[in-house]
């Protein structure tokens, strides 16, 4: 954790994003192939979104990247150097906030930090707009506030790569829009590399530079999103792209039924 701990001590928000190169990542559970020699490269500071129907291996991929699962085969390179997983450069946000109920919001954000963790945690809480809830217990926060605290917890480590495992999947529509805007702003400001897993195509197009369709454990499609930010859902080119991506997912899905 030393490199992350040092990174978190920096006051500069311009921590550069990590370049990630995943090569031939494979995983089989009891004869079922979940990741099939998956290749994926992320540019520094890029925001990529992975979409796909449920069970396509998108959450499994993130769990392998963060080191919660060990792959059967494959290689992960960070800035050209071999790494077993990304736990030393990345932080992950889960679909559930996973805040420790016995720690205050501030202490939750400061988890795993060393040194002057209180100051770092307080600053990051302020960045997600929760400065006044620092001393509260997590159970009094709303769902959206809990996820914002979880985002602060991830960003407090100043990660060079942020993994987002459907962090807005359980939020209501309005809170989800707020959360998307918050993530986009923090990403623009801090310039980390981001990898978002989502089942919401609109969310992927709102946030990502690049949309990756995962199917059968490998990358089926990989397209750039040429839209200017901030993106508006109502816009014509947005809607066209959304329809196209949905079309891919549905056509792949149709092949299975």
């Amino acid at each position: 954790m030393s490199d992350l701990a040092q990174g978190s001590g920096e006051t500069s928000t311009a921590a550069s994003g990590a370049a990630v190169d995943i090569r031939g990542l494979s995983k089989t559970y009891g004869g079922r192939t979940v990741l099939d020699a998956l290749d994926l490269a992320l540019q520094p500071g890029e925001f990529a979104a992975i979409v796909g129907r449920s069970g396509c291996g998108k959450s499994t991929l993130l769990r392998h990247l963060i080191g919660l699962e060990a792959p059967d085969a494959g290689d992960i390179l960070v800035d050209g150097a071999h790494q077993g997983n990304l736990v030393h450069v990345a932080r992950i946000m889960f679909q559930e906030s996973r805040l420790l109920p016995w720690k205050s919001v501030l202490a939750n954000v400061g988890i795993g930090l060393s040194g002057d963790w209180k100051a770092i945690a307080a600053k990051t809480l302020d960045a997600v707009g929760l400065a006044d809830r620092a001393e509260d217990w997590p159970h009094v926060l709303s769902g959206g506030q809990k996820q914002r605290a979880a985002l602060a917890r991830a960003l407090a480590h100043a990660p060079r790569l942020l993994l987002l495992d459907e962090p807005m999947g359980a939020l209501d529509a309005l809170t989800r829009l707020e959360m998307q805007r918050l993530i986009e702003n923090l990403w623009l400001e801090r310039k980390f590399t981001a990898l978002l897993v989502t089942h919401d195509v609109g969310e992927a197009i709102t946030l990502a530079d690049r949309i990756i369709l995962l199917e059968g454990g490998c990358v089926a499609r990989d397209v750039q999103v040429p839209l200017a930010r901030p993106r508006r859902r109502g816009a014509r080119d947005f809607a066209a792209l959304e329809a196209e991506v949905l079309g891919w997912i549905m056509s792949v899905y149709a092949g299975y039924i």
Binding site: L4, F94, G112, R153, H157
Partner: peptide, 11 residues
């Protein structure tokens, strides 16, 4: 899930 979170957050 909490134990998972704690391990990937460097505890």
């Amino acid at each position: 899930q909490l134990v998972e979170m704690a391990t990937v957050y460097g505890l």
